[in-house]
């Protein structure tokens, strides 16, 4: 059987070329580091964000140990804010796993959001690009290498105070468009830097624009035009991922110009498939915590089967894999798709 000889990379890249794969690929374009990967790389979570070599090794581990069909860097959501001059707290002294947060967001005005001319050289963008190159050199033939950037609205909310930004969205759309256009430029240039380093596909994460937060009307007027701009500027396979409530905006998501759309467990995937029709690439929507971390291996298997039955072209966890995921659940997730085929 031809599928047996295909590499993970061939399967994923063929899928992006709209050739459906059997078994359905299991991967994602978001963080996929586990505590086992951190162990393999011999580094703590707080430290891994600042070390390209460790980042590359830790990310590769989910493929090497479990057969996860993509290797993705980075692991945090602070790269853009840092490149824009903000400071991150990585919680180096904390025992548990805490994701870095932005410490000094600015008041939400267009003046406070200026794109640096040398963006690609700032913060950790060069470090993430280096991690991509390392993974690509070592595993590039076998497995798809992915990276991600924040969507314009989410990115702006990492640089500017989010509550003020949300109010600005309601009060001053002209100023919002200026901010989002600049944020879109950051996202597109960052994505292109990662592609130049060897990323096979780039995911744009616009979690701040779900219908838990913004109205579908605001999504259409304010968010979608800037997502379209980003996808028009980024080459190669791309994915638009939005977590949270997306049922009412999934059609607009599919119309942003990304190669594929990804949604999380709050989305009724079968209904979205019916809305989008059979052609559009739709990824999702395994619950990354309640199922993948807290569930039994059998519950993980069932959830994977449900994703496939609902019409997922690839099984994607709805967010970053939470690092303390049990190893047997990672294995169950990978096995379930193969078993079903």
């Amino acid at each position: 059987m031809a599928t047996a000889t295909k590499t993970a990379r061939e399967r994923v890249m063929a899928l992006f070329a709209r050739e459906r794969q059997t078994p359905v690929p299991v991967f994602s374009g978001m963080g996929n580091v586990t505590v086992y990967g951190l162990e393999d790389a011999g580094i703590g979570f707080a430290q891994v964000h600042g070390d390209a070599e460790a980042m590359a090794r830790a990310a590769a581990s989910s493929y090497e140990r479990f057969g996860y069909e993509a290797v993705v860097v980075p692991f945090d959501l602070g790269v853009e804010a840092e490149a824009m001059g903000r400071t991150l707290n990585t919680y180096a002294s904390s025992d548990g796993i805490l994701y870095p947060t932005v410490q000094n967001k600015l008041p939400a005005t267009a003046d406070n959001f200026q794109v640096p001319a040398d963006l690609e050289l700032r913060g950790r963008i060069p470090l993430v690009a280096q991690a991509i190159r390392l993974v690509k050199e070592r595993l590039g033939e076998q497995v798809a290498v992915g990276s991600y950037v924040l969507g314009p609205f989410t990115l702006a909310g990492q640089v500017l105070e989010l509550d003020q930004l949300l109010k600005l969205a309601g009060k001053d759309q002209t100023q919002m468009h200026v901010i989002l256009e600049r944020a879109g430029e950051v996202a597109a240039r960052e994505a292109e830097a990662y592609r130049a380093a060897g990323a096979d596909f780039v995911t744009v994460r616009e979690m701040g624009a779900a219908s838990d937060i913004l109205s579908p009307r605001m999504f259409r007027n304010l968010i979608q035009p800037h997502l379209k701009e980003v996808f028009a500027q980024v080459g190669g396979p791309t994915v638009l991922h939005i977590c949270g409530s997306t049922q009412n905006i999934v059609e607009m998501m599919a119309d942003c110009g990304a190669t594929a759309v990804s949604v999380d467990q709050k989305n009724d995937l079968a209904a979205s498939r019916a809305t989008l029709g059979p052609e559009k690439l739709l990824f999702g929507n395994l619950d990354p915590y309640k199922v993948l971390v807290q569930g039994t291996p059998e519950q993980v298997r069932e959830a994977v089967r449900n994703c496939v039955a609902a019409g997922a072209d690839a099984v994607w966890p709805g967010c970053d894999i939470w690092p303390t995921v049990p190893a047997e659940n990672m294995q169950a997730m990978m096995d379930a798709s193969r078993e079903q085929a």
Partner: peptide, 14 residues
């Protein structure tokens, strides 16, 4: 009732 979203609620709070 999904008539208001977070921006509207924040403006109401202001």
């Amino acid at each position: 009732a999904n008539e208001y979203f977070v921006p509207e609620v924040l403006m109401c709070a202001d």
